[in-house]
Amino acid sequence: MLEARLEQAGVLKKVVEAIKDLVQDCNFDCNDSGIALQAMDNSHVALVSMSLSHEGFSPYRCDRNIALGINLNSLTKVLRAAQNEDILTLKAADSPDSLNLVFENTERDRSSEYDIKLMDIDQEHLGIPDTDYSATVVLPSAEFQRICRDLSQLSESVTIEASKSSVKFSCSGDIGNGSVNLRQHQDLEKPDQSTSIELVEPVSLTFSLKYLVNFCKASALSPTVKLSLSTDVPLLVEYKMEAGYVRFYLAPKIGD
């Protein structure tokens, strides 16, 4: 059986909020190392991979592999009943029909209990190859969100160009064009506000803004986001959590 107690329900609330507009139904795969999820959007353009390590729970117990097939809309409805600071306990049997969720406030004088029905989801797991990326950019997640939102007003696509000292986001559409250039800089007082670039070779790639705007719903998970780019491979957008991550992969637009 699964029994996992999360100190802050907000962690799961934010994870679900981050991915629910990209995927509707997905398996939460539970085993002794933690809870993981991998799913593609309907058009197979984007893939989300989420991991919550057992270290993020206390206690955590899962003796065998359990797949929890969950409709994320249903889970969202139930999680709305939890405060971010509530303690959340997840429980499921070995071959479960439902997932049990208990929310307790920090004063421990209120507890709410919900069961949500599970479904059988036939999901193919893709093998994600290890990639040595040409460029890795770390920037404030709020900044990335603003750039994607602003450029999406003008165009469906953005070109991301990483060079040694800066990263440029540019787009062009019917009403005109726009670009945002971020220079590498270190903010010693507020490290989360820094922009850093690790470059093996310069790279320029084009992506759909609709998906990037969607990924940015994960911004609440982390003050920074990491973008990893290589020519003609999917972009990796990673939000790190204290004991896990949410990673989005986005297939590029190729050719002209």
């Binding site: 593609m40 058009s43 197979h44 353009v45 984007a46 893939l47 193919e124 797991h125 893709l126 093998g127 994600i128 190859p129 696509s157 084009t206 759909s208 491979v233 999917p234 992969y249 297939a251 590029p252 637009k253 190729i254 050719g255 002209d256």
Partner: peptide
């Protein structure tokens, strides 16, 4: 214009 690729052309199916 540019053609949108899918994830399936990069990541291996089981």
């Amino acid at each position: 214009g540019r053609k949108q690729q899918t994830i399936l052309s990069f990541f291996k199916q089981p």
